[in-house]
Amino acid sequence: MTKVTNILLAGVGGQGTLLASEVLSEVLMLAGYDVKKNEIHGMSQRGGSVSSHVRFGEQVYSPIIPEGETDILFGFELLETYRNLPLLKKGGAVITNNLKLMPPSVATGQERYPEGLEELICQQVEKSLVVDGLALAMEAGNPRTANIALLGALSTKIDVALELWEQALRKMVPEKFLEENLRAFELGRQAA
């Protein structure tokens, strides 16, 4: 069977993982791949952990990534990146935001946010890249563009022409936020 590449996006509801996965899938379709993408809506959206599976190749069957076959773990929040580490393939890569968002038990003082997650990830995974998404987004002019800055970092690891990324962003990002998102995307590419 021909090789399928698996990208797992992990984050917290409300962080814009959905838009990032939509742009990513569009780009891969434009590049001529078969693409499948899956995520869970509903109950899990209310500030809970969210993940989105994107698979591409000559022909893709399962819409969810077979366990342990994730090629790139693309994390939007440190704890969520770390939580999904067991799904990563041996020799796979991690691209993660360095943002920390408190889960309810931490926000209410029942538990502490685990320390040293960045180091734990980098020690275990040779191909790991930590990005300060918020800083890049602020530099681009809007803190809400962090998801697209992270996507810029991811784009350097996927063999797809730059024009297609721009084409997809122009199609899927609302016009009035387009310029700052294009800036964030470029800053993300430079940071990778």
Binding site: E67, E80, L85, P86, P103, P114, L120
Partner: peptide, 13 residues
């Protein structure tokens, strides 16, 4: 799994 989490992680319901 090729990689394991080695500490207890708070859930995020």
């Amino acid at each position: 799994p090729a990689y394991q989490t080695t500490i207890d992680l708070p859930n995020r319901p």
